[in-house]
């Protein structure tokens, strides 16, 4: 559903900045069709499974190679996606699978951290800014040390 014109223009700006900052931290943007091409078993958030009826779901979340869930918010300034724990938002989904696909409604992008923090409610929130990384050995950047190695954001207007 398209929103008012003015808001739309603003959203487009946030999206451009979000995209730039996300790629700075090693995340990427892909389109919806890319999800089905991911190899291995899937862990898909309840309510999204219907979009990909043919995919192999992992019986054990610890075995999943790709996690797919919706972002509850995003921050343009930092390229972050946010997740709030809830009945259909397992905390481990954004952590266990080595590839994390995030469906983001561009309208959910806040311009900066201040705006995002002002919207937090009493759930547990995680602000995720890029794929997991470490530089503990010789200061050399390694991705995917405990959390996901790949963070893929798919624009998903509701």
């Amino acid at each position: 559903m398209p929103g008012p014109r003015l808001a739309q223009a603003q959203v487009a700006d946030h999206w451009a900045l979000f995209r730039e900052r996300l790629s700075e931290v090693g995340g990427e943007v892909a389109d919806f069709s890319a999800v089905a091409d991911c190899p291995g078993l899937f862990w898909i958030q309840e309510g999204l499974k219907g979009f990909w009826p043919g995919l192999d779901l992992a019986a054990d979340p610890w075995e999943a190679m790709t996690g797919v869930c919706r972002a509850d918010m995003a921050v343009a300034e930092t390229g972050s996606v946010l997740f709030a724990s809830g009945p259909d938002q397992p905390r481990l989904l954004s952590l266990l699978p080595p590839r994390h696909v995030v469906l983001l409604d561009p309208k959910q992008i806040e311009p900066n951290l201040e705006a995002a923090l002002a919207r937090l409610d009493r759930r547990n929130w995680a602000i995720v800014t890029g794929p997991s990384r470490t530089a503990d050995i010789e200061g050399i950047l390694v991705r995917g040390v405990h959390g996901p190695r790949e963070l893929i954001v798919v624009p998903f207007p509701v």
Binding site: S85, T129, R133
Partner: peptide, 24 residues
């Protein structure tokens, strides 16, 4: 500390798992 705009994970803990939550 690490020359980043923001650390990769900022974990905002607001309490234990609620009865309807799958994990935590």
């Amino acid at each position: 500390s690490t020359g980043q705009r923001l650390t990769v994970y900022t974990h905002l803990v607001c309490g234990p798992r609620r009865p309807d939550e799958p994990d935590g």
